[in-house]
């Protein structure tokens, strides 16, 4: 065997190793969390709230409620804005000769790109300064959702734009040729056709809210009680993991909560993959 094929075998061995290591890392992280976390998960774990204080006792009921509120309220702010922005960028921005509109579109694109690179703690800091302090919303679901919305708006815009782009041009032409205007075409033809794609984007964003900790650490307050209004503080599941690990050192409870969190993310990922592959087969 010559030197060239020996070099190739060595190099390919290294690449195979890298691929295997990547899978092993995933398997080890997820496996470890699950093995350590699952034994602590009982029905009561879901139905009781954390005891509070330094004990770490109790379940995660209130954190599930808070996480749910966070998803709903954040999406209520971000989804219309994000989808609207994506519609403008993909459906309206192309057919104009006006220089001012084109300028605005490029500014808008720059804004989206910049926003998607901002680290979450900066959103937290901003939310703390504007919503918590200046607007006197305090540490609350409202403040945290507004700050969280900034995080997911770029995600929704990007995924929605992709979904809109995958709608065949013939649909639009067909509708326009029948005398429908741009908005009627978008509302009645393009959006329904892009529905699955947009919903994966929304689901992806919901996943980001479930996972996010830094923003909520500085805007949500961390109360372990069940929130009763938009102005209540609270702690999401992810935030609960942080408090359990860092403040009460209740690692077994932290592991169980983390296991629930990871399971939730896996289910969301699978759902997204199923929807995406359905889109692929529909179009293929």
């Amino acid at each position: 065997m010559n030197k060239r094929s020996r070099t190739q075998i060595a190099a390919f061995g290294m690449f195979w190793l890298a691929g295997i290591v990547a899978v092993l890392i995933m398997a080890f992280v997820v496996g470890y969390i699950m093995v350590k976390g699952l034994p602590g998960i009982t029905p009561e774990f879901f139905t009781t709230s954390p005891r509070g204080g330094l004990s770490g006792d109790g379940g995660i009921y209130s954190t599930i409620v808070t996480t749910f509120y966070m998803i709903v309220v954040t999406l209520a702010f971000a989804a219309p804005l994000g989808v609207g922005a994506a519609i403008y960028l993909s459906e309206y921005s192309g057919n104009t000769d006006k220089r001012i509109i084109r300028k605005l579109v490029s500014i808008a694109r720059f804004g989206v790109e910049t926003l998607s690179g901002v680290p979450s703690i900066i959103f937290g800091l901003f939310g703390y300064a504007l919503f918590v302090t200046a607007m006197h919303f305090g540490f609350s679901i409202l403040s945290a959702s507004l700050a969280g919305a900034c995080l997911i708006i770029p995600v929704i815009i990007r995924t929605t734009e992709e979904a809109l782009k995958s709608v065949p041009a013939g649909y639009r032409e067909g509708s326009l040729a029948l005398g429908a205007n741009r908005w009627e075409t978008t509302w009645k033809v393009v959006l329904p056709a892009a529905f699955r794609g947009i919903s994966t984007g929304i689901l992806l964003s919901a996943g980001r809210i479930v996972s996010e900790t830094a923003i909520f650490f500085v805007t949500l307050g961390g109360s372990y009680r069940v929130p009763h209004s938009l102005m209540s503080g609270g702690r999401s599941m992810a935030l609960h993991v942080y408090y359990l690990a860092m403040e009460t050192r209740a690692f077994d409870k932290a592991m169980s909560t983390a296991a629930v969190l990871v399971a939730l993310i896996v289910v969301m990922n699978l759902t997204i993959n199923v929807i995406t592959s359905k889109i692929a087969t529909k179009q293929g």
Binding site: V210, S211, L239, V241, N269
Partner: peptide, 17 residues
């Protein structure tokens, strides 16, 4: 998909790990 899952794991879980 393994790498996708790694991307989806919340940072607080990485911190705990």
């Amino acid at each position: 998909p393994s790498i996708e899952l790694l991307a989806g794991i919340p940072s607080v879980v990485y911190g705990l790990f």
